[in-house]
């Protein structure tokens, strides 16, 4: 209260005016501050989204006539071998995503105990995430090329050149090679996420547990795992949609040839090279539908199977706790509460 506030002459009318001005200002701030982001969101996300729905029913190019074809584009998505095959290619990337999450979880649980030089290990594993996708593509094009890095390494280990498969040409394994580049790129990032969640657990808990004679597995199972459940679930969801939308590895390394075309590589080709805009839009909608389905299914799955199964509390206790949390959240809609309830979870046990 340094300045004499304008409301000090507390006449009733001037106070009302003051309130009015506040209200007006409030509205102005809301409108002004939200105008640009909402405009951008509309123009670059929701209008394109609606147009995508509309275009998916037409046979059209970017410029020129369009003809209404009903559901034909959607039928094509499932009938054309190149598109439907691309969905199968995503399965490799999903497998990669599972491997990547498992590795990340494994290394994060190693790092949570005292490690000398942890900054180096963390940095080494995380850095690939920061390299741009095109550079990653080139690095691995070089890595897998016949007679280059990987082949030389295997020869050093005593393998014969004839026994080494063509990493990028052999249709049985080239998708695995490509999915492996994603694993290389994202494992460290996942690990950092998990590690962050694990570190938020009170370190006294580990000490107490090891004094009580709990071995590392028990510490992992009863202290670490419960603390990172939600972030693991979240990452599983993200990596499923991520693997459906894999684009850069095949695009740079093989250009989608030899059966490595992922959904987006095919879609990109159809939209921008063949100008089959309608079909590409139908593909995008189908993909989005799959992603939403996966998100919902995973959430439900973990809600009923995983979440309550590993907790030491009985289901009723879980329900009660959740009710309390909900009530607390409603009472004070602030993030500080959410955080304290997270750390509180660890403390209850």
């Amino acid at each position: 209260m340094k300045k004499p506030a304008s409301a000090v002459p507390a006449k009733k009318r001037s106070f009302m005016e003051f309130m009015k001005r506040r209200e007006g200002q409030r509205g102005l701030v809301i409108v002004l501050f939200m105008a640009i982001p909402l405009l951008l969101l509309a123009v670059f996300t929701y209008i394109p989204f609606l147009k995508m729905v509309q275009f998916s029913f037409f046979d059209m190019k970017y410029i020129g006539d369009r003809t209404f074809v009903g559901l034909q584009n959607y039928i094509d998505v499932f009938k054309r071998d190149d598109i439907f095959g691309a969905l199968f290619v995503s399965v490799y990337y999903m497998g990669g995503a599972v491997v990547q999450l498992a590795l990340a979880l494994f290394f994060a649980s190693l790092m949570v105990f005292k490690v000398k030089g942890d900054a180096f290990f963390k940095g080494a594993m995380f850095f690939p995430y920061l390299i741009c996708g095109i550079a990653v593509g080139f690095i691995f094009k070089f890595f897998y090329a016949r007679g280059f890095v990987l082949d030389s390494l295997l020869q050093l280990l005593g393998m014969e050149m004839e026994d080494i498969p063509m990493w990028l040409q052999d249709q049985r394994i080239n998708n695995i090679s490509l999915a492996a580049t994603s694993v290389w790129r994202y494992t460290g990032q996942n690990m950092i996420l998990f590690l962050g969640a694990m570190m938020s657990v009170d370190s006294d808990l580990y000490e107490a547990a090891s004094l009580d004679g709990a071995n590392k597995w028990h510490q992992f199972r009863y202290i670490i795992l419960p603390s990172i459940k939600s972030i693991v679930v979240l990452n599983l969801i993200l990596s499923i949609s991520g693997s459906l939308s894999a684009f850069e590895p095949p695009y740079v390394i093989t250009n989608g040839t030899m059966g490595t075309g992922t959904y987006f590589v095919i879609m990109n080709r159809l939209a921008h090279e063949n100008q089959k805009v309608g079909l590409a839009c139908a593909m995008a909608i189908v993909l989005l539908a799959i992603i939403i389905l996966c998100t919902v299914a995973q959430k439900l799955f973990f809600k009923y199977v995983f979440d309550d199964g590993t907790a030491d509390e009985s289901k009723a206790a879980v329900r009660r706790r959740k009710m309390e949390e909900k009530a607390a959240k409603k009472a004070a809609k602030s993030g500080a509460m959410a955080q304290s309830s997270v750390s509180g979870k660890g403390g209850q046990k």
Binding site: S245, F247, F264
Partner: peptide, 12 residues
Amino acid sequence: LIPGIATQVTVY
């Protein structure tokens, strides 16, 4: 949730 590349067809 909407993957960026998907909408680029119409954003274009």
